[in-house]
């Protein structure tokens, strides 16, 4: 069976990268004035109380690990990497997101561990443009 060696990874183009940059770089989400809950990514309507008045919120980048998993089947562009730990992380402000945990081995991580945001490449330059975004590491 022939394998498609020329297949290109599906990489977000420069225009899409431009639209999403603030969320990727700065953890910019939304805050509901009505019920005070925070959301990430930002919502037009509060997922908790359905209020439509949402204001922009820049989160601190500090949070704690809820649970962990190790990725053994990397997406295109990450084939050179060893299996990488991913975690569900609860930010200080409340929202939960999934992100890679860097500078650590999976076995050295555990739930409740405090983590902090760093900016790293989500995608390498194979498409001609690196896509940067948030990842997390164990807090200093």
């Amino acid at each position: 069976m022939s394998q498609n060696v020329t297949a290109r990874p599906v990489v977000a183009g420069p225009a899409r990268a431009w639209r999403t940059r603030r969320n990727r770089y700065g953890l910019v989400g939304s805050h509901c004035r009505s019920c005070q809950s925070c959301s990430f990514p930002p919502r037009r309507r509060c997922p908790r109380c359905a209020d439509a008045v949402q204001e922009e919120a820049v989160f601190s980048g500090r949070g704690t690990v809820i649970c962990l998993a190790e990725d053994h089947s990397p997406l295109a562009g990450h084939g050179d990497r060893a299996p990488r730990p991913f975690a569900m992380i609860r930010l200080e402000e409340g929202p939960v997101l999934m992100a890679e945990v860097v500078d650590a081995e999976y076995d050295g991580l555990s739930p409740e561990q405090p983590v902090e945001m760093v900016i790293r490449k989500w995608r390498p330059e194979q498409s001609g443009l690196a896509l940067y975004g948030f990842k997390f590491r164990v807090a200093s």
């Binding site: 060696v5 297949a7 290109r8 990874p9 990397p74 997406l75 295109a76 084939g79 050179d80 194979q126």
Partner: peptide, 18 residues
């Protein structure tokens, strides 16, 4: 050597899940 891309090679190894 691997992390720093010391040797040039094909960008998409066949082992990668696509």
């Amino acid at each position: 050597v691997r992390w720093e891309g010391r040797y040039r090679r094909h960008a998409h190894p066949l082992s990668v899940f696509e």
